[in-house]
Amino acid sequence: MTADPRTRDLPGPALRAEALESLLVERQLIDPKVVDGLINRYAHDVGPLNGAKVVAKAWTDPEYKARLLADGTAAIAELGFSGPQGEHIVIVENDTDLHNVVVCTLCSCYPWPVLGLPPAWYKDPAYRARIVREPRTLLAEMGLTLDESVKIQVWDSSSEVRYFVLPQRPPGTEGLSEEELAALVTRDAMVGVAEVAAP
């Protein structure tokens, strides 16, 4: 590869990328609008994919879900996800009567293997204090208004345990594949500050 004449002394990558795109557009092999849309979707809508795959598999495979609830770390490792901050992952499942939300009041413990690094708000002192003191109000401020009948359970991650929320599968998604479902699952839903919306 290193001696490949096609990669030697080439113009800068920006120019090459532009040249390739212009040729492909001219030949009607791609539509620039489609390219724009794909860039936007991947850059902004694709959440932590590892966790999303775990959730989608749990929604579609009852036996996997049982294993996930019994031993989160092991079931997550089945999909190839493991590593630092993932040694003791406990899955907490949302249902119509119970909503789970995760915090680390002491620092910012977070299940890296499934969610990546935590977002800024998760580490913010205000979130860490208020989600314990007034979860319903704070969740509403963050865009999740829960019915008064829904109990909110706040899970404080410790130095050992990392909690991971299994959100409710949205109604009307019975016909979707595991891949399609995974694309719906957001990071915020797996922390418990959002629900998964139907497409």
Binding site: V35, L38, Y42, A43, V46, L49, G116
Partner: peptide
């Protein structure tokens, strides 16, 4: 970065989208 794709220059997102 935080689960989202990282592009450092515009051409990178273009070639990705293409």
């Amino acid at each position: 970065l935080n689960g989202e794709l990282v592009f450092t220059e515009p051409w990178e997102s273009r070639v990705f989208g293409v």
